[in-house]
Amino acid sequence: MAVEYDGSAFSGWQRLTRPGEEDRREEATVQASVEAALSFVAGQPIGTVCAGRTDAGVHARAQVIHFDTPVHRDPRGWMLGTTTRLPPSVCIRWCVPVADDFHARFSARARRYRYRLLNRPVRPALMRDYLGWERLPLDAAAMHHAAQALIGENDFSAFRTVHCQAPHARRDMQEITVRRDGEVVEFELQANAFLHHQVRNIVGSLLLVGRGEKPEGWIAALLEGRDRTRAGPTAPPGGLMFLHPLYPASWGLPAEVSLPPTPDER
């Protein structure tokens, strides 16, 4: 399934209460809402696995999940039945059956995020839950040029939160662009996977370059230094959207989450 959600009112994707931890069931999460709706449609408990967890306040256009169940419903029934049991801020965009060995997280080859920032002297009134804001003028071209130092497989320790639980900080940054559209500056990033707060920490650091407080080469120095304390602040969550993961075409998923077919797959 592809889940679309406005993360403004949620404490992130993941269920918060685990064995031995403080009970946080009163905090709303997208996963808990989706699993409750799926379980109602199935008539039995359903657990889900997602392509990439998102933080509190972060949105998603096509968060891909998978679940296993012996219950038979047609894809349209799963999609519409689940959506009717979800809050207005969440819906199921599509549903397709997959092979038993498909895994929403481990089968993905890449993830793509977009951060949108309003760059003007006055804070936003409209769309304020979906935009970051910077009042000082930003040089989008300088930020784009500086960001190219992050392309490739690198140790991104300088851009991970101290709470990140990943066993290592090496990630393959496949693409990163910064562009301006009027008063809005967009940052778009694609990598094989992302660390906790990695996108927001990269954006926060690039803003120092955009404001002229740091030279373009500073981003490369941060990457090399691997020291989070020297990087910029974490950008607010509202401007961040998880666009979608990407899977090999051989899985037969919708085009928006599929990589171009390889010669062997054509």
Rank of each mutant, 00 (worst) to 15 (best):
I151T: 05
D129P: 08
P121G: 14
Y5I: 01
D6F: 10
V98L: 06
H144D: 09
P215M: 11
A158H: 07
D23P: 13
Q14H: 13
H168C: 07
G81L: 03
R53I: 04
R266P: 07
T83C: 04
N201V: 15
V209N: 09
R114P: 06
R230H: 15
R128M: 10
S157F: 11
T84G: 02
L195H: 13
R135K: 15
W13K: 01
D101F: 03
F159Y: 11
P124N: 04
G232A: 13
V185S: 08
V3R: 00
P97E: 10
H59F: 12
I46Q: 03
H59K: 02
E134L: 06
L240F: 07
L131I: 11
V41E: 00
A56E: 15
F40N: 12
L253F: 10
V203M: 08
R25T: 15
A37F: 01
M79N: 03
F106V: 08
L118D: 04
W218P: 03
E183W: 09
H197Q: 08
S107W: 07
H72G: 13
D101M: 07
H72F: 15
I65A: 01
H145N: 11
Q31E: 02
L126E: 07
Q63W: 02
A104M: 06
A220I: 12
R53Y: 07
A191M: 05
Q198A: 05
A255K: 15
V49W: 02
V96D: 02
A2P: 11
E153S: 06
D68Q: 05
Y5R: 05
D74C: 06
H59L: 06
N201C: 14
F67Y: 02
W218A: 12
P233W: 03
Y247M: 14
L207P: 02
R24Y: 14
V58P: 13
V58M: 07
H244P: 08
F159C: 13
T29Y: 02
D129M: 08
G47F: 00
P245G: 08
D74K: 09
L208Q: 11
G132Y: 00
A191I: 14
R18N: 13
G217C: 11
R179H: 04
T54Q: 05
A32H: 04
C95Y: 08
A60S: 12
A99F: 11
V3D: 02
R135I: 04
P260N: 09
M127H: 12
I46V: 09
V209P: 08
R171V: 02
R128H: 14
P215R: 13
Y247E: 09
T48W: 03
E27R: 09
R114D: 13
M1C: 03
G57L: 04
W251M: 07
G232V: 14
V257A: 15
I65Y: 00
L38K: 01
P261V: 13
L38W: 00
R15Y: 08
A249T: 05
G239P: 12
G20W: 03
I65M: 00
F194V: 00
P233I: 11
P237K: 10
E4S: 01
A104T: 10
H72T: 12
H103L: 02
A110D: 08
L16M: 10
